[in-house]
Design a protein around this nucleic acid. Structure first.
Length: 487
DNA sequence: ATGTCC
C-alpha cells in the first residue's frame, strides 16, 4: 500500500481509469494501468520516477502496468529526450542490454504433444543441444564473435540461417525488428580479451534469472483472426518462445560505461537524488561511447536468441523428423535506447527498460513483411502461466508505442523463496498430472524464485494494455514445457 | 541479469 500519498495526490486519471497523469516534484509521469493495479503500486516506483525526472531535458516518462522497482530505474520505464539535445542513461537501459523475445512457429499441433512422456523427451533433446548450466559453454565456437557484434545476423555463416526458417523462402533476418545495428566500431578495441573470450563461449546460451525457452500452444483471439492468419498462426499451433539477452557482453558494457559516465558526472557536477542513476549528454564522448557499445550488445543479443532458436530447432527435428518447420515469427527487444521519429516531436531518443515497442499497421518502422498489419509484439508471462502475441494500436503513439514486457514481479527473489513452498510451485506447474508443464530443472527448488507466485497476474497486465488502447491480443500462448537456465 | 566483489 502507498504510505506517502502526497506525491501523487494530483494524479489525473483518463482513458476510463487506464491512464494516470502523476505530478511529481521533479516532473510529470504517465502510468498506464487499470485502477486497481495503479492503486497497488509500491511508493518506491514513484520515488524512482522522481529521480529519473531530475535528469536534465527529459521530455516524457511513463510506466507500463507491469512496472516494478529495479536498480536506479524501474522495469517498465519509457523515457524520452529530444535526440538533438538529449541524454542517454545506461542506468535506464539496465545491465541486460538488448534483452528480448523471439518466437518460432512449428507445423505441430498441441495434440502432437499431448503425451507428457513426449514432452519430457523433447525437453531432454533440447537439453542436449542448448546449454543451461551456469558457465556452460555454447556450441558455436565456429562463429566469429567479431562478425556478430559488428554485423548482427549478417555476421552469421550461411548454414545458421537455414532455408524455410521463415515463410516464402525469405530469410529469417527479414522477420526481426533489426538484423543489424550500425555503430562506430572503433569502440570495440577497448573491450578486454577476457570479455571477448567469455562472450564467444557464451554465444547461443540462455542465461539465468527470468530467461527461458517455452514450448507453447496458441489460441487465436477471434477479433484478430485475420492478422493471425497473415502472420501464419493457427489455433492449437505449437510455437517456441525464447527470452534472453546479451549475456556477459552487455553486462560488461553496462558496467564499464556506467563507471566512466559516473566519473564524467562528478567532473561536471551532474547528478540526481540517486547516485546509482548515471547519464550523459548524447554529444559527450562518454555518451557517444556508450551508445556505440550498446549497439554492439543489441547485435549480440539478437544473434544469441537466433542461435538458441537454431539449437532448439535441432531438438525438434530430432524428435519430430526433418519435416518439422521452425519459421521465425519475430524477434523483439525490451531493454535498449535509440533514436526514433515522432509525429509531433520529431527526432527523439527513446529509452525502453522492460517496455516493448508495439507498432500499429502502416507505421513506417515496421519491417516490410509486417507493414500492413503491424509487427508481432511478444509478451512473456510468468512460468506456468500464459504468454501473449499482440499487435500495436495507432493510439499507442501517445506512449511512443510502448507496452508492457511481461507479468512484472511483485515479490523479490528472496521473499519468494521464503513465502512460496515447493508444493505451491508444483501445483502451479501441474506436476504429476497429464497436463504437467514439463520443466528441465531436476530440482524445482533451484528456480522457485521464478514461480508464478512471484509475479503479478499477466492477464490483468494485458487487460490494462488493451483497456488503454495501446495494443490488442492476437494470440494467447499456453506453456506445455519450459526450459530454464541454472543459477 | 551477471563468471552475481576489484
Amino acid at each position: 500500500m502507498n504510505t506517502q500519498p502526497n506525491l501523487f495526490a494530483d494524479a489525473n486519471d483518463s482513458l476510463g481509469g487506464y491512464r494516470h497523469e502523476v505530478k511529481l516534484p521533479a516532473g510529470d509521469l504517465t502510468v498506464y494501468a487499470a485502477q486497481q493495479l495503479f492503486s497497488s503500486l509500491d511508493y518506491k516506483v514513484f520515488e524512482m520516477a522522481n529521480n529519473n525526472l531530475q535528469i536534465p531535458g527529459i521530455s516524457y516518462m511513463s510506466y507500463t502496468p507491469d512496472v516494478h522497482v529495479g536498480v536506479g530505474t524501474c522495469i517498465g520505464t519509457t523515457a524520452v529526450w529530444d535526440a538533438n539535445n538529449g541524454y542517454v542513461s545506461p542506468s535506464i537501459v539496465g545491465s541486460d542490454i538488448g534483452c528480448g523475445m523471439r518466437v518460432h512457429m512449428t507445423n505441430l499441433h498441441k495434440d502432437d504433444l499431448k503425451d507428457v512422456k513426449l514432452r519430457r523427451k523433447l525437453v531432454k533433446a533440447i537439453e542436449k543441444v542448448l546449454p543451461m548450466e551456469a558457465n556452460q559453454r555454447g556450441h558455436y565456437s565456429d562463429i566469429r564473435l567479431e562478425h556478430i557484434v559488428r554485423k548482427g545476423l549478417h555476421g552469421l555463416p550461411k548454414k545458421y540461417i537455414p532455408d524455410g526458417y521463415t515463410p516464402k523462402k525469405s530469410t529469417s533476418i527479414t522477420h526481426v525488428e533489426s538484423s543489424k545495428f550500425t555503430f562506430d566500431e572503433e569502440v570495440l578495441n577497448l573491450v578486454p580479451d577476457m570479455t571477448w573470450h567469455r562472450s564467444h563461449r557464451q554465444l547461443g546460451t540462455l542465461g539465468g534469472g527470468n530467461h527461458f525457452a517455452e514450448i507453447q500452444a496458441i489460441e487465436i483471439a477471434e477479433e484478430n483472426r485475420d492478422i493471425a492468419e497473415a502472420w501464419g498462426l493457427v489455433d492449437g499451433q505449437i510455437v517456441v518462445m525464447i527470452h534472453s539477452g546479451s549475456r556477459t557482453w552487455g553486462g560488461h558494457i553496462s558496467q564499464t560505461s556506467s563507471s566512466a559516465i559516473a566519473k564524467m558526472m562528478q567532473r561536471n557536477g551532474l547528478g540526481t537524488s540517486d547516485p546509482r542513476l548515471v547519464f550523459a549528454p548524447l554529444e559527450h564522448a562518454e555518451g557517444r561511447h556508450y551508445v556505440n557499445m550498446m549497439y554492439s550488445a543489441l547485435n549480440y543479443a539478437v544473434v544469441n536468441r537466433h542461435l538458441i532458436a537454431y539449437s532448439i530447432r535441432e531438438a525438434f527435428r530430432e524428435v519430430f523428423g526433418s519435416k518439422c518447420e521452425f519459421r521465425t515469427l519475430y524477434d523483439l527487444m525490451h531493454n535498449y535506447a535509440w533514436e526514433e521519429s515522432h509525429p509531433d516531436q520529431g527526432s527523439v531518443f527513446v529509452h525502453r527498460k522492460g517496455a516493448t515497442r508495439a507498432l500499429p499497421a502502416h507505421h513506417p518502422d515496421n519491417p516490410k513483411p509486417y507493414l500492413a498489419t503491424g509487427h508481432p509484439a511478444l509478451i512473456p508471462g510468468s512460468m506456468g502461466t500464459a504468454s501473449y502475441i499482440m499487435v500495436g494500436q495507432s493510439q499507442g503513439v501517445d506512449n511512443f508505442y510502448s507496452i508492457c514486457h511481461g507479468a512484472g514481479r511483485i515479490r523479490s527473489r528472496n521473499a519468494t523463496k521464503r513465502l512460496v513452498t515447493l508444493a505451491d510451485f508444483e501445483r502451479a506447474l501441474g506436476v504429476g498430472t497429464e497436463n504437467e508443464i514439463v520443466v528441465n530443472q531436476r530440482s524445482l527448488e533451484s528456480i522457485i524464485d521464478e514461480s508464478p507466485q512471484a509475479y503479478k497476474n499477466v492477464d490483468e497486465i494485458i487487460d490494462s494494455v488493451t483497456g488503454a488502447g495501446l495494443a490488442q491480443v492476437v494470440a494467447k500462448c499456453k506453456p506445455l514445457a519450459a526450459v530454464k537456465g541454472a543459477k
